[in-house]
Each structure stands twice: as structure tokens, then as C-alpha cells.
């Protein structure tokens, strides 16, 4: 299986500010009653976007100018809470291809990397600058550059970070580990046999 090498993500960015945005917020549990991940994009941030009667609240995700954004900009501890892959899947299926935030909850980060959706960290100050720049000009072209560990927009260039292993696998196109895991047939067998339990 040849996965694309992901060295940068380019597109419009959508700011969804706030710290500790948890997976229940990203996709409320009631939308997890599904047998496949198809269609989850619709329910992204559902309760933050819609009132109980289905009418829209004021939220960037509801604004036409951000509709085809591919980069989300948020705060610290993004994706905390549940291990549900439904959260990164709903982001991915809503068209997002990279997340720039303060830092990420571990399982969310791993799940996103497995989808080929890089999660990069930037300082609070730089996140605020980037957010307000995209608020002011939603058409702004933003580049998340994994090779050079930079986020560039307009004339600005801010440094970003990502776990080196995840970066490697995105750059090499090995971000979905299944193929590689499958090749170690004998070693897996050996480890299984050496365990003191069945």
C-alpha cells in the first residue's frame, strides 16, 4: 500500500479557539451510534454549532467563508477525553487535513496521525496571532510545513512542533502502520510464544 507522503498541508484555516476542547465537544456521543465513520463530518462540533431546535448558533464552522477550510486552529490540550476515533474522523470527513493547537491529548494525536492528519503545536501567542489573522481574512492561505516545522501565512512564519516519530511517518508516507506491522509475522509469533500467558 502506498500512502501519500505528507510534507505540508496548504489551505484556508478556521479558528476554533479555546483550551481543553474535548472529544465529546468535537463529536457528541449520540452521533457515535454508527457502523462506519462515513457521514460523521456533518456532526462535527454539533452542540457548539446548533441549538436544541436545530437552528444555527454563531460558530465559525457555520460561516460560509470557512466552509472549505482544511486547517483548524485551536488552543491547549485539544482532543482530550475519549479515545474515540470518531473525533478525528469527523474532523477529517469535514475536510480538515491538519490541526494547529497548543498541544494535543495523546490518543487523539495518535488517531489523527494514523489518518494522515498532522497535529502540530505552536505557542499560545502565535496561535492567537494566527487565529486573528484568519478571522480578519478567511481567504488567507496557510501552510503547515512539516519539513521545516513552520506555519506560514501572509508574510508571517511561526515555528511549530510535532512528535518526531509522527513527523517521520507523515513525511515518509508510513503514517498508517498496518502494512509494516503485518510484515513481522515470525517475530510476532515468537513474542506470543515467549509470553508466560496464553
Amino acid at each position: 500500500m502506498n500512502l501519500p507522503k505528507i510534507s505540508q498541508v496548504t489551505g484556508r484555516a478556521i479558528p476554533v479557539p479555546g483550551d481543553d476542547i474535548d472529544t465529546d465537544r468535537i463529536i457528541p456521543a449520540r452521533f457515535m451510534k454508527c457502523l462506519t465513520f462515513d457521514g460523521l463530518g456533518e456532526y462535527l462540533f454539533y452542540d457548539t454549532r446548533f441549538n436544541a431546535d436545530g437552528s444555527e448558533k454563531l460558530h465559525n464552522l457555520n460561516l460560509p467563508c470557512f466552509r472549505d477550510a482544511s486547517i483548524m486552529v485551536s488552543g491547549a490540550n485539544f482532543g482530550c477525553g475519549s479515545s474515540r476515533e470518531h473525533a478525528p474522523q469527523s474532523l477529517y470527513r469535514a475536510g480538515l487535513r491538519a490541526i494547529v493547537a497548543g498541544n494535543f491529548a495523546e490518543i487523539f494525536f495518535g488517531n489523527s496521525t494514523n489518518l494522515g492528519m498532522p497535529c502540530v503545536s505552536a505557542s499560545r501567542e502565535n496561535l492567537e496571532k494566527l487565529s486573528s489573522a484568519t478571522e480578519n481574512d478567511p481567504d488567507l492561505r496557510v501552510v503547515v510545513d512539516l519539513e521545516n516545522l513552520q506555519v506560514r501565512y501572509g508574510t508571517e512564519c511561526i515555528p511549530c512542533e510535532i512528535n518526531p516519530g509522527a513527523r517521520e511517518s507523515l513525511l515518509n508516507g508510513t503514517w498508517d502502520p498496518l502494512e509494516e506491522l503485518l510484515t513481522a509475522t515470525n517475530e510476532i509469533e515468537e513474542t506470543a510464544r515467549s509470553l508466560p500467558y496464553a
Binding site: F37, S83, R84, E85, H86, P88, Q89, I107, G110, N111, N114, L115, N163, G165, D176, P177, L178, E180, L181, L182, A184, I188, A192
Partner: peptide
């Protein structure tokens, strides 16, 4: 470990997963 669905897939297929 709590894991995501892609890792559930990896585990079903190989009984192993990629971890740091």
C-alpha cells in the same frame, strides 16, 4: 492502553500496535 479504532484494526489483524 486505550486505543482508537485504527489500532483496534491493527490489533485484530496482527495482535500488535505501534506505540511510543
Amino acid at each position: 492502553f486505550g486505543v482508537g479504532t485504527s489500532q483496534v484494526r491493527d490489533l485484530l489483524a496482527t495482535q500488535t500496535m505501534a506505540m511510543s
